[in-house]
């Protein structure tokens, strides 16, 4: 008997302490006073979330009108792990600072210019500083540390027009923007506005790195959108290190270079 690929299934359930026990923990608040009726409502909600059986292990009144619950239950949903497609990983090799410097020096024969900022109302420079400052992030030094990269960190709450002007003035190869504030989707709005301003300022550009700077945006809450949605060349998420960004810049701006 032959088994075709599409008949192979690998069913998995959450793991508490025994294979297949399917146990999960959930916490939530309901806008009702604490009591047996609230507990029943919590059980029903958990049931509708696919947990069965369920137990409410903790409830706490938060003021007269709200109750907090911690619930454990058995998830009734099954996941076929064999059908899960591996999300796309990094499409470029990770380089050391020395390799990055060598690539820039060998191919560009000048410094690679990066302009970074937090735009719009966002005052949180933590992200851009983690990537740009010498101090860096997660044990990796920031782009200021790279001998062949010239960094202009404009800081917080930079107007889009100023960013475009400074990028032009510095002849930037890449513009890095970080966006933390997500209230009312400010991060998406600001990024689109920036991309549009660069498109206007470089009307003859073909793509990032060809006629205009590469546009790179980073922040913790860009997971629901693609670069083309925003009009940028690349999105980086939470936990991105300076080395990943530097490696990407080389891959995107110096595609002819081969580290080997």
């Amino acid at each position: 008997m032959t088994i075709s690929v599409d008949t192979i299934k690998q069913i998995i359930r959450p793991y508490g302490d025994t294979t297949g026990d399917a146990m999960v923990q959930v916490s939530f608040t309901l806008p009702v006073p604490q009591g047996p009726r609230a507990d029943a409502a919590a059980l029903q909600l958990a049931g509708k979330m696919g947990l069965d059986p369920v137990s409410v292990v903790h409830t706490k009144a938060m003021g007269p009108d709200f109750t907090f619950f911690i619930v454990y239950g058995k998830a009734t949903h099954l996941i076929d792990y064999a059908s899960i497609v591996v999300p796309e990983g990094r499409e470029y090799p990770l380089l050391t600072p020395n390799q990055v410097n060598l690539a820039i020096k060998t191919v560009l024969a000048r410094k690679l210019v990066v302009v970074g900022a937090c735009i719009g109302t966002d005052a949180h420079t933590v992200g851009i500083d983690a990537i740009l400052n010498v101090k860096g992030f997660a044990g990796e030094k920031g782009l200021e540390y790279y001998r062949e990269i010239e960094v202009h960190n404009l800081g917080a709450q930079v107007e889009v027009d100023e960013l475009v002007a400074r990028a032009k003035g510095a002849n930037a190869d890449a513009v890095l923007v970080s966006q933390v504030v997500t209230q009312k989707s400010a991060h998406l709005h600001n990024t689109k506005q920036m991309a549009a301003a660069f498109a206007d300022a470089y009307p003859t550009s073909v793509t990032g790195g060809l006629g205009r700077p590469l546009l790179v945006v980073g922040g913790p809450r860009f997971d629901t959108v693609t670069p083309s949605d925003l009009g940028v060349d690349r999105i980086f998420g939470k936990g991105t290190t300076p080395g990943e960004v530097a490696s990407y810049l080389v891959a995107a701006l110096i595609p002819t270079w081969n580290p080997a």
């Binding site: 916490s27 939530f28 608040t29 706490k60 938060m62 709200f66 907090f68 209230q183």
Partner: peptide
């Protein structure tokens, strides 16, 4: 930004 339960905890 903190939820009601975050603040309570």
């Amino acid at each position: 930004t903190p939820w009601l339960s975050d603040r309570d905890l």
